[in-house]
C-alpha cells in the first residue's frame, strides 16, 4: 500500500494484492460489480433499521431502549458511509435510492422477515449481525480501498451489536419461563434465515468466481456459512437455547459441525419478493422518501438563497 506504488495497472494491483483506489483505471465490469454489491450493502443497512425500529418505542427497559436507539443510529451511519463509498465509483446516493425504491436494486432478504417479539431484537443482534460479521470481516481486505476501509469501521460496530444481542438473549434465556420461551421462539424463527444470508450454495452462486478473482470476495458462500455455524453452535449452548436443526452434530473428521439441508426454495421466494415483509419494507422506505421530499427541496432552496446572498 501507499504511493508511489510499484505497480499501477489494474491487473498488477490485483495480482500484487494491493488496493484499487477511486482514480485508478478499472474494468467496467469490476466497477459495476462493486456498485451493485456496495449499494446492496448500503440498502441493507437502511432497510435493516425497520425490523429493529419496530421495537424502539416498546423496548421493555430504558437501558435497552437506549442500546437499541444507538444501534439503529449506527446502522443509519453505516448506510451513510457505504453510500459515500459507492459515490467514489461515480454513482450518487440519489441514483442508488431511486434504484432501491424502484425495486431495481436489492437488499439482504433477511430483513423481509418480521420482528414479532422483543426477543427478535436479541436474535437479530446475535444471529443476523453475527452472520453479517462473518460475511464482512473478509471484506476489510477487499481489493477496492474505500469499501475495505468502510468495512473496518462497520465490522467494529457490528461486533459490538452482536455482543449486545447475545447479552439480551442471555438475559431472556435466564429470566422467567415466559422470557425463556420468547427467546427460544425467536431463535427458532431466525436460525434458518440467518444461514441463508450467506447466499445460495457454491454450485449455484452466479457471482462468486469472478468476484473472487477480483479480490472482492475472499471466501465462498459455503465456506463462510460453515464458519458461522461453527462459531454459533457453542454460543447457543452458552445461551441455554436450542438451534432448530435435529441434524446438527459435531463431525470429528472435519472438525466442524454438520448441519441439515437448507430449504433454499424459501430463500429464492423471499428474494423474488414473496417474503412476509418485502412489500411493507419497500413501501415504508418509499413513504419516508416521498414525505420528506418537501423538506429536502426546502433545504436546497435555502442553500441556494444563502449562496446567492453571499455573492451579492
Amino acid at each position: 500500500m501507499g504511493y508511489p506504488r510499484v505497480v499501477s495497472t489494474f491487473d498488477d494491483l490485483i495480482a500484487a494484492n494491493e488496493r484499487v483506489e477511486p482514480r485508478d483505471e478499472m474494468p467496467d465490469a469490476y466497477r459495476a460489480t462493486l456498485v451493485r454489491q456496495i449499494a446492496q450493502h448500503a440498502h441493507s443497512e437502511i432497510i435493516g433499521m425497520q425490523p429493529e425500529g419496530n421495537w424502539l418505542t416498546r423496548a421493555p427497559s430504558l437501558r435497552r431502549k437506549a442500546i437499541l436507539l444507538a444501534k439503529v443510529q449506527d446502522e443509519a451511519g453505516h448506510g451513510l458511509y457505504l453510500y459515500a463509498a459507492a459515490e467514489t465509483l461515480g454513482v450518487s446516493r440519489d441514483e442508488l435510492l431511486d434504484a432501491l425504491h424502484a425495486g431495481k436494486q436489492k437488499y439482504s432478504s433477511i430483513f423481509n422477515y418480521p420482528t414479532l417479539t422483543w426477543a427478535d431484537i436479541g436474535a437479530i443482534g446475535w444471529l443476523v449481525d453475527g452472520a453479517a460479521i462473518v460475511n464482512q470481516v473478509p471484506l476489510c481486505r477487499c481489493s477496492y480501498g474505500p469499501y475495505a476501509r468502510a468495512m473496518v469501521r462497520v465490522c467494529k460496530e457490528e461486533s459490538f451489536h452482536q455482543r449486545q444481542g447475545f447479552e439480551l438473549l442471555h438475559t431472556l434465556s435466564h429470566g422467567t419461563e415466559a422470557q425463556h420461551a420468547m427467546a427460544q421462539d425467536a431463535v427458532d424463527r431466525w436460525w434458518w434465515p440467518s444461514l441463508m444470508m450467506f447466499g445460495p450454495p457454491d454450485d449455484a452462486s452466479t457471482h462468486t468466481g469472478q468476484s473472487m478473482a477480483w479480490g472482492i470476495k475472499r471466501f465462498s458462500n459455503d465456506t463462510l456459512r460453515q464458519r458461522f455455524v461453527d462459531m454459533t453452535v457453542p454460543q447457543a449452548e452458552a445461551l441455554g437455547l436450542t438451534l432448530p436443526d435435529p441434524e446438527l452434530r459435531w463431525n470429528e473428521e472435519r472438525s466442524s459441525w454438520d448441519f441439515g439441508e437448507i430449504d433454499f426454495t424459501e430463500l429464492f421466494e423471499v428474494v423474488k419478493g414473496n417474503g412476509p415483509c418485502n412489500a411493507q419494507r419497500l413501501a415504508h422506505r418509499v413513504r419516508a422518501h416521498e414525505e420528506g421530499a418537501w423538506v429536502r427541496e426546502a433545504a436546497s432552496a435555502y442553500a441556494e438563497k444563502r449562496a446567492a446572498r453571499e455573492v451579492a
Binding site: I46, M49, Q50, G53, L56, T57, L62, K65, A66, L69, A70, V72, Q73, A76, G77, G79, L80, Y83, H284, R287, A288, E291, G292, A293, V295, R296
Partner: peptide
C-alpha cells in the same frame, strides 16, 4: 423516536436519533 426510519433524509435519522438518545439519557 417514532421518526426513526421515517426521517426526510438519512442524516436526519441519525440526528433525531441522537437527540432522542440525549433526552432519554
Amino acid at each position: 423516536t417514532e421518526w426513526i426510519t421515517l426521517a426526510p433524509q438519512l442524516e436526519e435519522d441519525v440526528a433525531l436519533g441522537n437527540i432522542a438518545l440525549d433526552l432519554l439519557g
